[in-house]
Protein backbone atom coordinates (compact mmCIF):
# COMPACT_ATOMS: atom_id res chain seq x y z
CA UNK A 1 0.00 0.00 0.00
CA UNK A 2 1.25 3.49 -0.87
CA UNK A 3 2.31 5.66 2.02
CA UNK A 4 -0.32 8.38 2.56
CA UNK A 5 1.13 11.82 2.06
CA UNK A 6 1.37 13.82 5.29
CA UNK A 7 1.47 17.49 4.30
CA UNK A 8 -0.05 20.62 5.87
CA UNK A 9 -3.81 20.76 5.40
CA UNK A 10 -4.08 17.03 4.55
CA UNK A 11 -6.97 15.25 6.25
CA UNK A 12 -6.47 11.66 7.32
CA UNK A 13 -8.59 9.06 9.01
CA UNK A 14 -7.97 6.04 11.13
CA UNK A 15 -8.75 2.60 9.73
CA UNK A 16 -9.45 1.15 13.16
CA UNK A 17 -11.83 3.79 14.58
CA UNK A 18 -13.75 6.98 13.89
CA UNK A 19 -10.68 9.13 14.54
CA UNK A 20 -9.78 11.83 12.01
CA UNK A 21 -6.95 14.36 11.96
CA UNK A 22 -5.77 17.32 9.92
CA UNK A 23 -2.07 18.05 9.46
CA UNK A 24 -1.24 21.44 11.01
CA UNK A 25 2.52 21.24 10.41
CA UNK A 26 4.14 18.72 8.09
CA UNK A 27 7.08 16.53 9.14
CA UNK A 28 10.64 17.42 8.08
CA UNK A 29 10.95 14.00 6.42
CA UNK A 30 8.23 11.57 5.36
CA UNK A 31 6.79 9.58 8.25
CA UNK A 32 4.48 6.58 8.49
CA UNK A 33 1.47 7.74 10.44
CA UNK A 34 -0.59 5.18 12.30
CA UNK A 35 -3.59 5.18 14.56
CA UNK A 36 -4.15 2.19 16.83
CA UNK A 37 -1.30 0.44 15.06
CA UNK A 38 -2.79 0.63 11.55
CA UNK A 39 -1.69 3.11 8.85
CA UNK A 40 -3.91 6.19 8.51
CA UNK A 41 -5.37 6.88 5.09
CA UNK A 42 -6.63 9.95 3.23
CA UNK A 43 -10.11 10.96 4.34
CA UNK A 44 -11.62 10.14 0.96
CA UNK A 45 -9.71 6.85 0.48
CA UNK A 46 -11.81 3.77 -0.22
CA UNK A 47 -12.84 1.97 2.95
CA UNK A 48 -10.87 -1.15 3.67
CA UNK A 49 -11.70 -3.90 6.08
CA UNK A 50 -11.35 -2.33 9.49
CA UNK A 51 -9.00 -3.91 11.95
CA UNK A 52 -9.80 -3.85 15.63
CA UNK A 53 -7.89 -1.16 17.49
CA UNK A 54 -5.19 -2.30 19.83
CA UNK A 55 -5.71 -1.47 23.46
CA UNK A 56 -3.45 1.58 23.30
CA UNK A 57 -5.52 4.59 24.20
CA UNK A 58 -7.47 7.04 22.16
CA UNK A 59 -7.26 10.22 20.11
CA UNK A 60 -9.25 13.13 21.51
CA UNK A 61 -11.32 15.67 19.58
CA UNK A 62 -9.83 19.16 19.43
CA UNK A 63 -6.46 18.14 20.87
CA UNK A 64 -3.21 18.81 19.09
CA UNK A 65 -0.58 16.09 18.85
CA UNK A 66 3.10 16.56 18.12
CA UNK A 67 6.11 14.45 17.22
CA UNK A 68 9.20 16.33 18.35
CA UNK A 69 11.56 14.25 16.21
CA UNK A 70 9.92 15.18 12.92
CA UNK A 71 8.19 18.46 13.99
CA UNK A 72 4.88 16.94 12.82
CA UNK A 73 1.76 18.51 14.34
CA UNK A 74 -1.78 17.17 13.98
CA UNK A 75 -5.20 18.40 15.10
CA UNK A 76 -7.78 15.76 15.92
CA UNK A 77 -11.01 16.73 14.13
CA UNK A 78 -12.96 13.65 15.20
CA UNK A 79 -12.23 11.59 18.28
CA UNK A 80 -11.76 7.85 18.23
CA UNK A 81 -9.95 4.84 19.65
CA UNK A 82 -6.28 4.21 19.00
CA UNK A 83 -3.19 6.26 19.80
CA UNK A 84 -1.35 8.20 17.07
CA UNK A 85 2.21 7.23 16.13
CA UNK A 86 4.76 8.52 13.62
CA UNK A 87 7.32 5.88 12.56
CA UNK A 88 6.43 4.05 15.76
CA UNK A 89 6.90 7.06 18.07
CA UNK A 90 3.82 7.86 20.14
CA UNK A 91 2.68 11.43 19.48
CA UNK A 92 2.37 13.60 22.57
CA UNK A 93 -0.38 16.01 23.54
CA UNK A 94 0.60 19.59 22.84
CA UNK A 95 0.31 21.53 26.07
CA UNK A 96 -2.40 24.16 25.96
CA UNK A 97 -1.38 27.63 26.99
CA UNK A 98 -4.81 29.17 27.44
CA UNK A 99 -5.11 32.73 26.22
CA UNK A 100 -7.83 35.00 27.51
CA UNK A 101 -10.71 35.45 25.10
CA UNK A 102 -10.14 38.56 22.99
CA UNK A 103 -13.08 38.71 20.59
Amino acid sequence: MAVTEVKPGARLRSTVSEAEVVVVRGPQDAVQLRCGGAPMVALDAATEAAAAPGDDGSTLLGKRYVDETSSLELLCTKGGAGALTADGRVLTLKGAKPLPSSD
Partner: peptide
Protein backbone atom coordinates in the same frame (compact mmCIF):
# COMPACT_ATOMS: atom_id res chain seq x y z
CA UNK B 1 -5.94 27.29 16.19
CA UNK B 2 -3.13 29.40 17.60
CA UNK B 3 -5.26 31.43 20.03
CA UNK B 4 -8.15 29.18 21.13
CA UNK B 5 -8.18 25.77 22.81
CA UNK B 6 -11.06 23.63 21.50
CA UNK B 7 -14.03 23.28 23.90
CA UNK B 8 -12.10 25.11 26.61
CA UNK B 9 -15.06 27.25 27.73
CA UNK B 10 -17.07 26.34 30.79
CA UNK B 11 -20.67 25.34 29.82
CA UNK B 12 -22.07 28.33 31.72
CA UNK B 13 -20.12 30.85 29.64
CA UNK B 14 -21.94 33.27 27.35
CA UNK B 15 -20.48 36.06 25.26
CA UNK B 16 -22.29 39.32 24.48
CA UNK B 17 -21.43 40.57 21.00
CA UNK B 18 -22.14 44.22 20.32
CA UNK B 19 -19.61 44.83 17.54
CA UNK B 20 -21.23 44.82 14.09
CA UNK B 21 -20.71 42.00 11.54
CA UNK B 22 -18.69 44.23 9.20
CA UNK B 23 -15.97 44.62 11.88
CA UNK B 24 -13.27 41.92 11.92
CA UNK B 25 -13.93 41.22 15.61
CA UNK B 26 -17.61 40.74 14.78
CA UNK B 27 -16.64 37.99 12.34
CA UNK B 28 -13.81 36.47 14.38
Amino acid sequence: LSTIEFASADPSEASLVSVPPYHIAGVA
